[in-house]
Nucleic acid binder design. Structure first.
Lengths: 217, 217
DNA sequence: GCCTTTGTTGTACGTTCGTACAATAGGGGC
DNA sequence: GCCCCTATTGTACGAACGTACAACAAAGGC
């Protein structure tokens, strides 16, 4: 009978912090923000609840870290192929549309997490900063694509027109993401992508391929 | 010294319920859902906190009522002029755009309330029903306008095309509402309306008036 | 193999939450 | 003007919350 079974594992602060953050996001996704207590989160992570305060000064700190982590992951999943200059513009655009409007980005759980954090934004300066940075990062990634599309289309443009169209494209994607996440059985990914492609290509005056090309995942 | 000053006023259940609902919405808008406790809400309404349980069986019941109340008010503010058949189509559309993307609909506080409720939707069947009804009501109001625009434009259409365009228009408005509510100083109402008009009229193939007409509020 | 470091646990405390219930009092019906 | 109904109040209770702190133990340095 071996008695050298350790009661717990020591992990590096970085790894443990990430585990706690991901446990937080899972709890919020599954049961909502109000259920994301330190006890529930630590149970999800499989540690004692008092450990949270060793890695995060307050619970609010954990929430901020989780918000930044979640938004960064979403933005990366959405726009990872936007800057891949080896592929033609239309391909990149369609890939971004597909990535944004398919799971796991367009997803009820992800929306839950996002909505939970959004309502904290006005009451916490750090949350506000994270939110602003995320939104601007998204738009800053989108704008070069818009400019490239207008140039390819020989449409004369100035920064204001690009920003105008970036706002519009962003709004279409945000709106479809929202509705597709909330009502997945009414608006399946294929429908969302179809609407987004039609609308975005119309906004950008790009020719719309009639038959969908094969987009690698 | 008059001593006949009453300690409180008796109100009808209907009025008191509405007062409590509106107090709930004010608290959520100001301090977030987590601060919307029965004590905070009743203080906002100027009554004893135990009164809430006399008019609402549980706090969850109050939240559901407040959610339905809020969404109904938002939808009404947004689309009140959609069915006014005495005005030309383009006017009605532009009025809806303006109403949707200006305060008090596009508004940080309204977004806070909405986000707070949204994260309750997956965990409560009644909330889910309210949400579904609101969304479908919005789209059902929008679709006749789309169909009318296509007809006026002599574009042949079937229900699927109308639905497609309704989803797109809805997404544009939702997305702009979202971003305008979150970042009002970066996206003022005038900008949102400009983008929405351009995009929606493009989706519907309607001629866009170059100079903004005077839209009554 | 011991020692130091610190990641980890368990317990305890004060606060605030939603709920329950008996007592009070406003106000319309008669 | 009295009485009944019930809207309203005040107090109390158990549960769960975030936080604080001392004791324990895993794991690398020597």
């Amino acid at each position: 009978m071996s008695e050298n079974k350790p009661k717990f594992r020591r992990e590096s602060p970085e790894l443990r912090r990430e585990q706690l953050i991901e446990a937080t996001l899972r709890v919020i996704a599954r049961k909502g923000v109000s259920a994301a207590t330190v006890r529930e989160i630590s149970a999800e992570a499989g540690v004692a609840f008092s450990l949270i305060r060793h890695h995060f000064k307050t619970k609010e700190d954990l929430m901020c870290a989780a918000y930044a982590y979640h938004m960064q992951k979403m933005a990366q999943l959405s726009l990872s192929s936007a800057t891949d200059q080896t592929r033609p513009l239309a391909d990149r655009l369609r890939q971004c549309i597909k990535d944004t409007l398919s799971p796991p980005v367009t997803n009820g759980a992800a929306l839950q997490v996002w909505a939970g954090f959004i309502q904290m934004v006005p009451h916490d300066a750090r949350m506000k900063q994270i939110h602003r940075d995320t939104y601007l990062g998204f738009r800053d990634t989108l704008e070069p694509l818009i400019a490239e599309a207008l140039t390819a289309n020989k449409t004369p443009w100035d920064p204001r027109l690009v920003e105008h169209k970036a706002i519009a494209c962003n709004a279409v994607l945000d709106g479809l993401w929202l509705e597709g996440s909330m009502l997945p059985d009414m608006l399946p990914a294929a429908r969302l992508i179809e609407v987004a492609e039609t609308t975005l290509f119309a906004i950008l005056d790009l020719p719309l391929a009639t038959a969908p090309i094969d987009i690698p995942t």
